[in-house]
Simulated assay, not measured.
Amino acid sequence: MTDRGWTLWARCRGMDTTTFFPQKEDGRLAAARAEAAARSICRSCPVVAECRDTALQAGETHGIWGGMTYAERRAFARARKLGRVLSA
């Protein structure tokens, strides 16, 4: 089990989770707006790295975690594995 104490400091704590899980069924524009809103919140979050790393460890395939989409998290993990990420 991982330590989830970092969630106490997350900017998204107590927010509507739909912002972080955009639905394509709602339309591209609505999904893009939700994604932009989530990224904006993540940019100012003091525990963004912990959030991202939790999603990577859990293999989370949906939502914005650590300011990244699933595809971005996969690319980040590959780059990290190849030693192309200087700091995480």
Rank of each mutant, 00 (worst) to 15 (best):
R43L: 08
G59V: 05
R52W: 00
V47H: 02
L56R: 11
R28V: 14
E50G: 02
A34C: 09
Y70E: 13
F20Y: 10
V47Q: 07
P46C: 05
I64L: 05
T18C: 15
I64V: 14
T19Q: 07
R33Q: 10
T19D: 06
A32L: 14
D26V: 09
K24G: 14
I41K: 03
T69M: 04
Y70T: 06
K24R: 15
W65F: 07
T19I: 07
S40T: 08
L29D: 14
L56S: 11
V47D: 05
T69V: 09
A49R: 07
P46V: 01
Q57N: 15
K24S: 15
C45M: 08
E50C: 10
T61V: 13
L56N: 13
D53M: 08
I64T: 07
T54K: 08
P46S: 03
H62F: 12
F20S: 03
K24M: 11
D26Q: 10
R33H: 11
I64G: 00
T54W: 11
L29F: 15
G67I: 00
A31M: 06
P46A: 01
T18F: 08
T18Q: 13
G27N: 10
E50H: 13
V47P: 06
A36Y: 09
R28W: 14
R28I: 13
V48R: 09
S40E: 12
F21M: 11
A71C: 13
A30V: 12
I64Q: 00
V47A: 08
T61D: 10
A38K: 00
R33F: 03
A71R: 09
G67E: 01
A55F: 11
P22A: 08
A34L: 04
A71T: 11
S40N: 14
H62Q: 13
K24P: 07
G66P: 01
V48A: 02
S40P: 15
R39L: 04
A38R: 00
E60A: 09
A34Q: 00
A37Q: 02
A37M: 06
L29E: 14
R39M: 03
C51W: 00
A49F: 05
T54Y: 09
A49M: 11
V48D: 02
R39Y: 01
C51A: 12
C45L: 07
E60L: 05
A37F: 00
A36E: 07
D53Q: 12
S44A: 12
A31V: 06
G63S: 10
F20E: 03
I41P: 06
L56P: 04
A58C: 14
L29Y: 15
R52Y: 00
G66Y: 00
M68W: 04
T69Y: 05
R33A: 03
R52H: 02
G66T: 06
A32W: 15
A30M: 10
E25L: 14
F21W: 13
G63W: 08
C45P: 02
L29V: 15
E50Y: 11
A37S: 09
C42L: 04
F21Q: 09
E50A: 09
D26T: 09
R43N: 08
